[in-house]
């Protein structure tokens, strides 16, 4: 697997050099390449599309302005996610200062992992029940509902495919904290999805 911590490809190095030289076409390429992923992160952190778009716009502007200082210690994508995460966090703190606080306490380490409660095996549902629009909406709503500090780790690691090290770099966490938060997020989502899929499966099971 490639290491996103390193500005790995010559394409990326060339793009960064062009951005640093103020090449307009390079900025457009960067938007084309990275805006969709930045939007997926922002949309999952913010309440609506407009706020998510603002975060992406702020991220790209801020990146283009500070690209001269980009050292290539992390990949460009990791660096952009870091800027986007911080931009989203600033906005969330401004709009609801109490809700994004130090809820991180106790999230790292295995102590006090929530005990699984949902014990129905819903894996046997037909594939069409997992593929449906309703199921996809449930999956998305569950991510939105994750506690903030688990959510961003889950989005970057599981949904955007960053490595543990790259996600740690983007979020200013230790790799160990990324691993335990990802695990907590998965367990949390399993509980939440089980509630939905069990209800789907049980009427059939009772017949």
């Amino acid at each position: 697997m490639d290491d996103p911590l390193i500005a790995e490809t010559s394409d990326e190095r060339a793009l960064i050099a062009r951005l640093q030289a103020g090449d307009k076409a390079a900025c457009a390429e960067c938007v084309e390449l990275h805006a969709p992923g930045l939007y997926r992160l922002a949309r999952r952190m913010m309440r609506d599309e407009a706020e998510a778009e603002d975060v992406v716009q702020e991220t790209l502007l801020s990146a283009f302005k500070s690209i001269a200082h980009f050292e290539g210690r992390s990949g460009l994508r990791t660096w952009l996610y870091r800027i986007a995460y911080n931009a989203a966090l600033m906005r969330l703190r401004r709009s609801r200062p109490d809700s994004v606080s130090v809820e991180g306490a106790g999230l790292d380490g295995d102590a006090g992992l929530p005990v699984p409660r949902q014990m129905f095996d819903w894996c046997c549902l037909p594939e069409s029940d997992f593929d449906s629009r309703e199921a996809r909406d449930q999956l998305e709503a569950a991510v939105q509902a994750l506690p903030e500090k688990l959510k961003v780790v889950f989005v970057l690691r599981e949904l955007e495919g960053l490595s543990t090290e790259a996600a740690a770099e983007a979020l200013g966490l230790s790799p160990e904290a990324v691993k335990t938060r990802l695990h907590r997020a998965r367990l949390w989502l399993r509980e939440r999805l089980a509630a939905y899929f069990t209800e789907l499966a049980q009427p059939a099971a009772e017949d």
Binding site: Q118, D121, W122, C123, F130, A135, L139, V143, E158, L159, R186, L187, L189, R190, L193, A194
Partner: peptide
Amino acid sequence: TLRQTIRLY
């Protein structure tokens, strides 16, 4: 179900 959760995402 945890494996399935990961796959669905």
